[in-house]
Nucleic acid binder design. Structure first.
Length: 327
DNA sequence: GAGACGTGGAC
DNA sequence: TGTCCAAGTCT
């Protein structure tokens, strides 16, 4: 008789299978293969205890974590995440606050437009989804700041659905393990998406767990630099390792930061964030010497909705100060 | 599809 | 010290 253990072994028949036996991944189509089983086992033993992975994490909490984690290290997210959910435990609570409060609470996480979009998403959830986070990946994808990765991640991790979750970690693991390349391409291809879907275990709950397991493997073991192959549960079947760890193509374009508009925007917004109320233009002038660049950056911040220009010439975080004639 | 968009820790 | 890098999205 067959025994179904969806989390670790798939469907096996006692007497015909011994633990640790190596099969090609085609032996158990539509179930959990030995390779994915090895990753699931590794995850069970080595996963980090992160607040958004705990059973009491709400879909809203998972959504908040996914937005904060975009391009941002876990260690820097943790304290902001905790403070954010303590203050805004539901979409409705965030929607009821001014957007500028969200930008201020975002602190120095970076890419503050994420705070603005998360606030807009909270409002959309109240207006169109009864204040709830939708379980549908398509509905999630339609929300501001939520792209294909985040939609799949929330549908998987908050609702236990079966979606290919293609973040940079998963893409790097698959590039090495299956394609024998050191690094993934600049953006996910259709072939990559098909590959990720083909590797997904069939039961939705197992697929969701597998996705987070591969992400964790990429974050802790199969890292971009100095991968810890000696600690990897699937090193034996890794195409990149078997090929001798060939280095990927040419020079990666390194993005400058010092002296850019980006840095200037960051400085200006930091002044607004660290002041309780509106600030005069003179205070912003002190934050950046180059007048032309400062003016351009400030215009950009206003255009993005991150800064409100007040009639008296001062500047404020959005929605934190009444602007006459806007309603 | 290339470029814009923050920030700070690690090596 | 400078470069690389971290659970992407939008235009």
């Amino acid at each position: 008789m067959a025994i179904a253990d969806p989390v670790t072994r798939g469907t096996v028949t006692p007497g015909t299978v011994t633990p640790g036996t190596v099969f090609p991944d085609t032996v158990f189509p539509d179930t959990v293969t030995p390779r994915s089983g090895a990753i699931l086992d590794w995850y069970a033993a080595h996963q980090r205890d992160l607040p958004w992975r705990r059973p009491d994490a709400t879909p809203w909490a998972v959504l908040v974590s996914e937005i904060m984690l975009q391009q941002t290290p876990v260690a820097r997210v943790l304290p902001v995440y905790a403070a954010w959910l303590a203050r805004w435990p539901s979409p409705a609570s965030l929607a009821a606050s001014p957007a500028g409060d969200a930008v201020r609470a975002w602190g120095r996480l970076g890419y503050p437009r994420r705070a603005l979009r998360l606030h807009a998403t909270a409002q959309a959830l109240v207006e169109r989804h009864g204040g709830q986070v939708p379980a549908s990946a398509d509905a999630l994808r339609a929300l501001p700041g939520i792209g294909s990765y985040t939609a799949a991640a929330v549908a998987s991790f908050a609702f236990g659905q079966r979606h290919a979750v293609l973040d940079t970690n998963v893409r790097r693991v698959l590039a090495r393990l299956v394609s024998g390349r050191e690094l993934p391409s600049a953006s996910p291809s259709a072939a990559e998406r098909r590959l990720a879907e083909s590797l997904l275990p069939e039961p939705p709950a197992v697929a969701a767990r597998w996705s987070v397991a591969v992400m964790e493997l990429g974050a802790l073991v199969c890292t971009a630099a100095r991968p810890r192959c000696a600690s990897c549960p699937v090193a034996a079947s890794c195409a990149w390792r078997r090929a001798g760890h060939p280095a990927d193509g040419g020079p990666r374009r390194t993005q400058k930061y010092a002296g850019t508009d980006r840095q200037c925007r960051g400085r200006l917004l930091a002044v607004l964030r660290d002041c309780a109320g509106p600030v005069p233009g003179s205070q912003l002038e002190a934050a950046w010497a180059d007048q032309l660049q400062r003016s351009r950056a400030l215009d950009g911040l206003v255009a993005d909705g991150l800064v409100d220009p007040l009639p008296d010439g001062r500047f404020a975080l959005p929605g934190t100060h009444p602007v006459p004639g806007t309603h």
